[in-house]
Amino acid sequence: MISPCTPQKPPILPPGAPAPQAPTIPPPPSLLPPDTSDPAVPPPPSVLEVTIPPPPLPPPPLTMGVAPPHVFGLEKSRLLKEALEKTGPLPGSKEDVKRLLKLHKDRFRNDLQWTLFCADLPSLIQEGPQCGLVALWMAGALLVPPSGVPLERLVQVARERGFTAQGEMFSVADMGKLAQEVLGCSAELLRGGLGPPNRDRVLQHLLAGHPLLIPYDEDFNHEPCQRQGHKAHWAVSAGVLLGVPRVPDLGYTEDPDLPGLFLPTPGTDPPLPPLPEDEGPGLVYLLAKQGKSWHYHLWDYEHVRDSNQQLTDFSPARAADGRMYVVPAGGVRAGLCGQALLLTP
Rank of each mutant, 00 (worst) to 15 (best):
D300E: 10
Q310K: 09
H303N: 11
G282R: 11
Y301T: 06
A288D: 08
R305F: 06
W294I: 13
A288E: 10
E277Q: 15
E302C: 10
V284P: 09
D313G: 12
T312Y: 06
G280K: 04
S293E: 13
V284R: 00
S307M: 02
L298P: 07
H295K: 07
L311K: 01
V304P: 00
L286A: 02
P316Y: 01
G291E: 06
H297M: 14
P316D: 03
Y296K: 08
Q290S: 14
P281S: 08
G291L: 05
Y285F: 05
V284L: 08
D278R: 13
S293M: 12
D306P: 08
V284H: 05
V304E: 03
G291C: 04
P281D: 06
S293F: 10
E277V: 14
W299E: 08
Q290A: 11
K289R: 14
L298W: 06
Q309C: 12
L283V: 07
E279N: 10
V284A: 09
P316Q: 01
D313I: 12
D278W: 09
G282V: 12
N308Y: 03
G280M: 06
S307F: 00
S293T: 14
Y296W: 15
S315I: 03
H303S: 12
E302R: 07
L286R: 02
L286V: 00
A317M: 07
L283S: 03
W294S: 14
D300K: 01
S307Y: 00
L283N: 00
K289N: 01
H295F: 08
P316G: 00
H295S: 13
P316V: 01
P316T: 02
Y301W: 10
A288K: 07
L286I: 07
Y296H: 15
